[in-house]
Amino acid sequence: MTTTTICRAWAIQRRDGVVLGFTDHDARIEFDGILFRPDHGMSARALVQGSGLSVDNSEAAGALSDDAITERDLLAGLWDGATLRMWEIDWNDPRARTLIFAGSLGEVSRGNGSFRAELRGLSEPLNAAQGRVYHPRCSARLGDGCCKLDLADDRWRGTVAVEGLEEGRILRFASFGNFMRGWFERGSLLVLDGPAKGLGGVVKNDISLPGGAREIELWQAMAILPRVGDRLRLTTGCDKRADTCQKKFANFLNFRGFPHLPSEDWLMAPGAEGRNG
């Protein structure tokens, strides 16, 4: 491979299956059925890779564009956890290439019409803590393989159109079905229509107002605001308590916590050693 004809190319596959190719060469390159384009202004810093398990010291940066990397897709989380492969290539002969990085995108930040994404190597998941945590509250995520609750059931979610919006995070509705007060606290919101389609948020408060009206407050304002009339999907939340699992979801059989585990205060209380055989 001739050093004067070396360029870099990287392919990114998003969570929705879309694959995009980029290169720092001044012309298009194609191999493995992927077209690597130079016209999106995406680049990557020099890779620093070691034999340990730390995050590789590198990042990808680029410009937001209408047809490749849009601000709305970033906000919707489509690029979170996207897989990435990077090659060094002889642009005279794309068959002469070396894979120099494989991993995923980590934290993605944006601003001033551009974005930056941390690159994480294949060993990054090995840094995550393994095993279960012994805690009175449930360790499962609502609706996952351990919880086994079907969140597609209409008992756990509802669809409603926006009737009022304040500060980008407080939504108001004249009526909201038969859901109990606080039903959606700690739950999620997803926009189904309009310019904010695909964006979402986490519900902080679910407040019942006089006359059957409802107010939903998010923890953080949405970057792109839904319009009056746009539809939202609200999914219930869980506070991880055994009582909630039993009474709200009737799912105590799958509860993944230890509700009878003594607290640290109880273990340290005078005479506790005599009661703890």
Rank of each mutant, 00 (worst) to 15 (best):
E185H: 05
V228D: 14
L232V: 13
F184G: 05
T235M: 02
D193W: 10
V191F: 10
E215C: 03
D193Q: 12
G187N: 13
R181K: 15
F173V: 06
R231W: 04
V203N: 14
I216F: 04
R172T: 15
L225V: 03
V203H: 15
G229A: 01
A213N: 11
R186A: 08
E185Q: 11
F184W: 07
V202I: 09
A221N: 03
A174K: 11
M180A: 14
G198V: 08
R214K: 15
F176G: 15
A221L: 07
L218M: 10
G212R: 11
L209F: 02
N205G: 00
F184L: 13
K197Q: 13
I207A: 08
L199D: 07
V228N: 12
L225A: 07
F184M: 12
M222V: 02
R214I: 04
F173W: 05
L189M: 12
L199N: 13
R181H: 03
I207V: 15
M180R: 14
K204C: 00
V228I: 15
S175V: 01
L199W: 02
G182A: 05
G200W: 10
S175I: 00
R231K: 13
L190T: 15
L234P: 06
L192N: 03
G211A: 08
I224T: 14
P210L: 00
R172K: 05
K197D: 02
S175M: 07
P195T: 14
E215Y: 04
F176Q: 10
I207S: 06
V228E: 12
G177Y: 14
R172Q: 13
F173Y: 14
A223Q: 14
V191R: 12
A196R: 04
I216W: 13
N205V: 01
A213Y: 14
P210S: 09
A221Y: 08
R181F: 01
V228Y: 03
G177S: 09
G229M: 05
F179H: 10
A213T: 09
F179W: 11
G194K: 08
W219Y: 14
F176K: 11
V191M: 07
G229Q: 12
G201P: 04
L189W: 08
I216P: 03
G211S: 09
V191Y: 07
A196P: 12
G211F: 00
W183G: 01
P210A: 07
P210G: 01
L192D: 10
V191E: 09
R227E: 12
F173N: 06
D193E: 15
N178F: 03
A223G: 04
D193M: 01
E217T: 08
G194R: 10
L189N: 06
R214Q: 14
G194P: 06
V203Y: 14
G229C: 05
R233K: 07
Q220Y: 01
F179S: 11
I224W: 14
L234Q: 04
F176M: 15
L199G: 01
G200V: 04
M180V: 11
L190C: 05
A223F: 12
N205I: 00
G198P: 10
S208L: 05
A213G: 15
R227L: 15
G182Q: 04
R231E: 06
L189H: 08
G211D: 03
M180W: 10
